[in-house]
Simulated assay, not measured.
Amino acid sequence: MSVREIIKATKEYIESISSIKQEIKNIDILLNNHQRQGKERENLENIRNELENKLTRLQNAMSSLNEEEQKALCYRYFERMSQIELLEALHYPKSKLYKTINNSLFKVGKILFCIEILG
Rank of each mutant, 00 (worst) to 15 (best):
N33W: 11
R41L: 11
L51G: 04
S64D: 08
Q83N: 11
E116N: 11
M62V: 07
Q83Y: 04
R76C: 05
Y75K: 11
L55Q: 13
N26F: 09
L105Q: 00
Q37E: 13
E50N: 15
M81G: 08
E68R: 15
Q35K: 15
A72N: 02
L65N: 03
S16N: 15
G109Q: 03
L44V: 06
L118S: 14
I111S: 05
Y77E: 05
N66V: 05
L90R: 08
E5P: 01
F78K: 03
L51Q: 06
H91Q: 12
S104A: 13
I7L: 09
R80L: 07
L97N: 10
Q83G: 03
A89I: 12
Y13S: 04
N103Y: 03
L105C: 03
C74G: 09
E68Q: 15
S63Q: 07
I7N: 09
S16L: 10
Y92L: 06
I111A: 05
N53S: 12
N60I: 05
A61K: 00
L73P: 03
M1G: 13
E116I: 09
E12C: 08
R76L: 03
Y98I: 08
A9C: 06
D28V: 02
K107V: 03
L97T: 08
I17D: 09
M1F: 07
S64N: 11
M62Y: 01
L86T: 06
N26C: 05
T100E: 03
S95Q: 13
